[in-house]
């Protein structure tokens, strides 16, 4: 069980990298918990979670080899 995590924008200031692999998590909440354990500042950061390019708003089962993206507030244009 492996999930690819993509990190964008200001969140990369916290993680220091833009991509990582997380194993042994089965839901989005477990993933966020694991990431927040590793990067405590994520707990107070503002972002939404996208699973395979779709924003999710509640705990969701993560398929093997799926891609989860952490998206802070957009600031294009």
């Amino acid at each position: 069980m492996q999930v690819k995590v993509l990190i964008f924008g200001q969140l990369t200031d916290i993680t220091g990298l833009s991509e990582l692999l997380v194993t042994d998590v089965s839901t989005s909440n477990e993933l966020i918990e694991s990431l927040t354990g590793k990067y405590p500042e994520l707990a107070t950061a503002k972002y939404v979670v996208a699973l395979d390019k779709k924003v999710i708003s509640q705990e969701t089962q993560l398929p093997d080899n799926s891609t989860v993206a952490l998206l802070p507030p957009f600031s294009g244009g």
Binding site: F8, G9, Q10, A50, A69, L71, P72, F74, S75, G76, G77
Partner: peptide, 9 residues
Amino acid sequence: LKAELPVWG
């Protein structure tokens, strides 16, 4: 597009 595209400056 400013509100909805995942783009960061």
